[in-house]
């Protein structure tokens, strides 16, 4: 349990920097991708900012537990294990959620596709770090 929490915390810090740093750079250099977020569908009063920034740690602890539970099933080199872990998470968790989100919310394909790729990248990075520090 302690190992799960420690690796979760380490990965959470890494994902926090990479995810929000990447998002900041995305907004700065590809602003056109973010125009559709000016919509009441997205929280606009700042009341949930803390929850938004905690996401990196929510996903890291969840993936840390998932890795500890199923890591023996991911075989091969460190890179292969990390990649497979990310793809498995994307297929099992992300794809169905993106599907239901797009079918029920007034959001664009680009938005959903970017969320899918964002989540996939987070899971691959997490998988690589887990394979390194908790093989």
């Amino acid at each position: 349990m302690k190992k799960i929490l420690i690796t979760g915390l380490i990965v959470g810090c890494i994902l926090f920097i990479l995810s929000y740093g990447g998002l900041y750079l995305g907004v700065r250099y590809f602003p056109g991708l973010f125009v559709d977020y000016d919509n009441p569908l997205f929280n606009s009063d700042g009341s949930r900012d803390i929850l938004f920034y905690l996401h990196a740690f929510i996903i890291s602890f969840a993936l840390s537990w998932f890795w500890a539970r199923f890591k023996t099933m991911f075989k091969g080199t460190l890179i292969m294990r990390g990649l497979e872990f990310g793809v498995v998470y994307a297929i099992i968790a992300l794809l169905p959620v993106m599907w239901i989100s797009f079918s029920s919310l007034d959001i664009t394909v680009i938005m959903v596709a970017s969320w899918f790729l964002y989540g996939l990248a987070q899971a691959i990075i997490a998988g690589l770090v887990f394979a390194k520090i908790n093989p």
Binding site: Y20, L23, V27, F34, F42, G46
Partner: peptide
């Protein structure tokens, strides 16, 4: 009135 802000303040009006 508070100008809208999205994605944790990454997008600001």
């Amino acid at each position: 009135l508070v100008p809208p802000r999205k994605l944790g303040g990454m997008i600001k009006t």
